[in-house]
């Protein structure tokens, strides 16, 4: 399932606007009794407001992390909070979004499954006076805000690393396996395309298999097993989603090739991902810190509320940072683990 989508051409204007927004929002704070007045403004514009969160699903580590952070932040700020679980179904998500508009919350945080879904609904929400922030995934319509990663950039970094490890001069076979998620998901497409561009720069790199797993670890396991039989000398395996890639990594481990085949993946830096790195299943793990993204999106929501502009009048963005986690630094990494629900 699509996790994140990004339109590169939007990056610059959004970044600029974000800066402007931050300035505007801090202006009233320059009065005499700064602290008290600011607190009053904050309280007035934040408390009792409603945040509606619409992820693609609940029950997966990434979404659960976001959900936890957003919920606790909202509770801390005395905001009302609601969440819907469309269970991986984009039609249900659209339905939930329309339902949310009818409920008239103040901010909707939505994870858009693809670039075209919700185009009309976001406009409708804004016309109804609701701020819409997109988390991790964008649509063709600019909403009031965006928080998430830049997939192309991440894939470029990953690709360069793979070329370095496996390409000309590394002394290795140069054989690479890509475990795609779902072929049609935009995130998958952006990452795969960027990777292939990087690989094209080095003739030694040879992609021996590029199969869809539909985000399923079992399928990744089967595919990897079969490919490793045929090409025991594979240099690197890349999977764009940690939970699914673990299946492929189990196959590597089963084949006794741990350490010989480099497993690349990325994720939100939650416990499950870190455990995989610690267990030696994933060698290079690109962590884009889902916990932090949850914080960022709440900050953005509060800023929008305090600024009080008409929804749809500004578009702001915040692109998440990312960093490599390997076995060496995994103990220093945050590896967030949300408390289990009782």
């Amino acid at each position: 399932m699509t996790l994140i989508n990004h339109c590169r051409r939007l990056v610059k204007p959004i970044a600029l606007t974000l800066g402007a927004m931050l300035c505007i929002s801090t202006l009233p704070a320059s009065a005499a009794d700064g602290g008290a007045q600011l607190k009053e403004i904050y309280t007035k514009s934040i408390e009792g407001k409603t945040i509606a969160f619409l992820p693609m699903t609940l029950g997966a580590p990434l979404m659960d992390t976001w959900e936890y952070v957003i919920r606790t932040e909202a509770e801390r700020s005395n905001m009302k909070y609601s969440v819907k679980d469309p269970a991986w179904n984009s039609t249900a998500l659209a339905q939930a979004f329309e339902g949310a508009i009818a409920d008239k919350p103040d901010v909707i945080i939505v994870q858009n499954p693809n670039v075209q879904l919700l185009v009309k609904q976001i406009k409708q929400a804004q016309e109804a006076g609701i701020y819409v922030i997109q988390l991790s995934m964008m649509s063709n319509t600019l909403s009031d805000g965006y928080v998430g990663g830049d997939w192309t950039e991440q894939a470029e970094v990953t690709g360069k690393d793979i070329v370095k490890e496996c390409g000309t001069g590394s002394g290795k076979s140069g054989k690479v396996v890509i475990l795609q998620g779902e072929l049609t998901s935009a995130q998958n497409v952006y990452m795969t395309n960027a990777l292939m561009k990087e690989f094209a720069k080095d003739t030694a790199i040879q992609v021996v298999s590029s199969q869809a797993t539909n985000w399923d670890a079992t399928k990744a396991y089967d595919i990897t097993t079969a490919v490793l039989q045929q090409h025991p000398d594979v240099c690197a395996i890349f999977g764009p989603y940690d939970i699914m890639t673990i299946g492929g990594a189990q196959a590597v481990k089963k084949a006794g090739l741990t350490g010989k085949v480099l497993v690349y993946s990325n994720g939100g830096g939650y416990k499950e991902g870190c455990d995989a790195v610690r267990a030696g299943l994933i060698d290079r793990y690109m962590d884009w810190d889902a916990w932090n993204q949850g914080r960022e999106v709440m900050v953005m929501a509060k800023n929008l509320l305090m600024a009080g502009e008409k929804p749809g009048s500004h578009n702001v963005a915040s692109f998440s940072s990312f960093f490599w986690v390997t076995k060496d630094n995994v103990d220093q990494a945050r590896c967030t683990d949300i408390p289990k629900k009782s």
Partner: peptide
């Protein structure tokens, strides 16, 4: 209505 060719439609 939705203008979206999602692969999970239907």
């Amino acid at each position: 209505r939705l203008n979206s060719p999602s692969s999970d439609t239907g």
